[in-house]
Simulated scan of single mutants.
Amino acid sequence: MISLIGILIVFLTVFGGYMAAGGKLGIIIKSLPYEFTMIAGAAIGAFVLSNHTSGAKHTLKDIKKVFKGPHWQPGDYHDLLCLLFELIHLGRQNAVAQEEHIEMPESSAIFGRYPRILADYDAVEMICDTLRSASMNYDDPHQVEEVLEKRLEAQMHHAMHSTHALQTVADGLPALGIVAAVLGVIKTMSSIDQPPEILGKMIGGALVGTFLGVFLAYGIVGPFATRLKSVVEEDQNFYALIREVLVANLFNHATNICIEVGRQNAPGHVRPSFGDLESSLKSLKQAAE
């Protein structure tokens, strides 16, 4: 909703200010279809040219995040900590029983209690792979921590592809607007024998190209890229929390301490309160006994 409000404000202030200053929309409306076709078409073509098929699909799919916001909500962080508590607690009591859950998470009763997390391939794989590594009795937990760090970096690099692609388009739009404007000037020069009032309209139409390129770059596509980047970075905190808890587990801290490390590393606006989380963990512990 906030993104739609932002777009509305951009259009109202730009075109409202133009009309309030005495500008007339007629010449813009008349030139818009042709200028927009040239600029948007060239931008789309450049986007397709600079991205492989999966990257282009990934970007188009991610655009909806601008309006939907982060995938992971405060309740998901609470559920994640509860899930990790159950798995770690079980593993310290019965490693064989834990193995059944991490080898087949799709049929696990523990994972099944948290369907939103179970539906996320990256989160489930990260949890299961790390717990599987812990069961191998690594001599150096720092080695697993380094592997997790590299995994998160690779995941972040992939997730940021869309925002880089959109920003590249935004960076190119002003230049494409100039291309459209130059073509309009060329057209105008070919009609130099026309009266001044006709030439004025033709030059005005050409300048619509420059306006449109700059407007789309800094009013629409650029902010889309910035918003998408913030959403991706916020969602990445979810996976960083997994790393913090599982690394603490590798150092054999008490289970509750591992979970508290994760809770305190969660961003403030999604961090579960200590009391609520402690109550949930007590209930889980009692149910397991």
Rank of each mutant, 00 (worst) to 15 (best):
K30Q: 10
H164K: 15
L32G: 08
G268E: 14
K285Y: 04
R92Q: 07
P272E: 09
V231P: 01
G222S: 10
Q93W: 14
G200R: 07
G209E: 01
L25G: 06
S135M: 09
H142A: 12
A206D: 01
S50P: 08
G16C: 04
R227M: 04
I198Y: 15
S273L: 05
S283G: 14
V182L: 01
S107E: 10
L281K: 07
L246G: 01
K229I: 01
L173H: 03
G23N: 05
D193R: 13
L84K: 04
G112Y: 01
S279D: 12
F11S: 06
Q264K: 13
M202V: 03
K30F: 04
K187G: 15
P267D: 00
A217P: 11
A288I: 00
K30G: 08
F215C: 02
T210V: 02
A288D: 13
E278P: 10
F67N: 04
L152T: 15
W72G: 03
V66A: 06
L241M: 12
A288H: 11
E35V: 13
G172Q: 08
N137C: 10
Q155Y: 05
V232E: 03
S50K: 12
E35H: 10
K65C: 13
D76P: 12
A159S: 11
A206L: 08
L250Q: 02
A288E: 11
Q194S: 09
A46G: 02
L216K: 00
V48Q: 08
C82F: 05
E106M: 09
Q236T: 14
F111C: 06
F36C: 08
A266V: 00
K285D: 10
K282F: 09
K150S: 07
L87V: 00
L216V: 06
M126G: 04
S279W: 15
T210G: 00
F111T: 04
F274S: 13
F47W: 09
H58E: 14
E125I: 15
G204T: 10
F11V: 04
I117P: 14
Y114C: 09
G45D: 09
V185L: 07
N51W: 08
